[in-house]
Design a protein around this nucleic acid. Sequence first.
DNA 1: CCCGAATGAGACATCAGTGTCTCATTCGGG
DNA 2: CCCGAATGAGACACTGATGTCTCATTCGGG
Lengths: 182, 182
Amino acid sequence: MSLDRERVLRAAAALLTRKATASMDEIAKAAGISRATLHRHFAGRDALVRALEQLGIEQFERALDEARLDEGDAAQAVRRLIERTEPVAGILGFLYSENQLFEGEINEGWNRLDARVHALFVRGQEEGAFRIDLSPAWLTDALYGLIASGAWAVHDGRVAAKDLTRMVAELLLGGAQRRMDR
Amino acid sequence: MSLDRERVLRAAAALLTRKATASMDEIAKAAGISRATLHRHFAGRDALVRALEQLGIEQFERALDEARLDEGDAAQAVRRLIERTEPVAGILGFLYSENQLFEGEINEGWNRLDARVHALFVRGQEEGAFRIDLSPAWLTDALYGLIASGAWAVHDGRVAAKDLTRMVAELLLGGAQRRMDR
DNA sequence: CCCGAATGAGACATCAGTGTCTCATTCGGG
DNA sequence: CCCGAATGAGACACTGATGTCTCATTCGGG
């Protein structure tokens, strides 16, 4: 039979995004397998969440790769990053808030990813594309926060899924205020 | 003796913001009271969280009142709102993500507050101050998300507390991109 | 100072979730 | 088709948290 490990993780992510305290039994049901099988593949709840985090890290890293953050002007690179991140927005939002709300050591992998996003905003500032009165660290956090908010807004029907990336990108880059040149 | 109910709630908020799954025992310790006393004042964990939500709603409502959202230009009203919200940013971030990550009916009170924030963004659009290609619903969600992200960034030392309101307001209103006129 | 009210400490039963185990059944490659 | 591997169903013990209770102690207003 050979169970599809990633398929289970995706089902778990979909459930945990809605209900962070879902039990192993609920996760198993959501994945369409028995609790026993779930335990056979993940040593325990912690292991499952850590595997989920690993999956999120890999997916986000792929998004970073595909966005080619070093190429072109920084603003376009940010737009590409948001577009590539869209498929993982839900799981990323879950992991972001989970890391904030729950104790326990943070997976080292995030540091590497944070550094790449951080570097993108630094480049944008050095090239004169981004304002220098907003720190790169804050822009990084704001990006995560907006992605999470966007994913939730879509999930609850307050924002159309097709508008998600544009809403996030436009707000992050351009803000809410109207400008003369648009 | 007469225990200060709000003081307990504030301690609970401070703890739950860092660790959303803190037990009644941990909350009691954090508040400097015994678990028995905590149970005497709040029927159970649910009741405590609901009381916490009520407190957050009241505080945020006061911030909305004090910000006088109907007066002056909309952008300044947004700045005033963010300033007034700063003292409750932590608890607000907790409640925002809690409402997204945990099941259970949402407190009706949020609708009233959401409507007021929503109306502010509508007014800004009607007056030509805000862009019309970002929906008021999204701007509302983005405001909450940025406040939560900001509170976490301050908590973790990535952003200085004194910069919080400016960082949130500037990003929400002006975005990350540099403009010619500043 | 005194007495009632509030608190702290701890015992206790209960419950939900976890992790482990067994055994029957099902799947699928060879 | 057959046999080993994987799964499903369920029993089981264990843990941590919850909610209730009692009793001694402490507080503070009158």
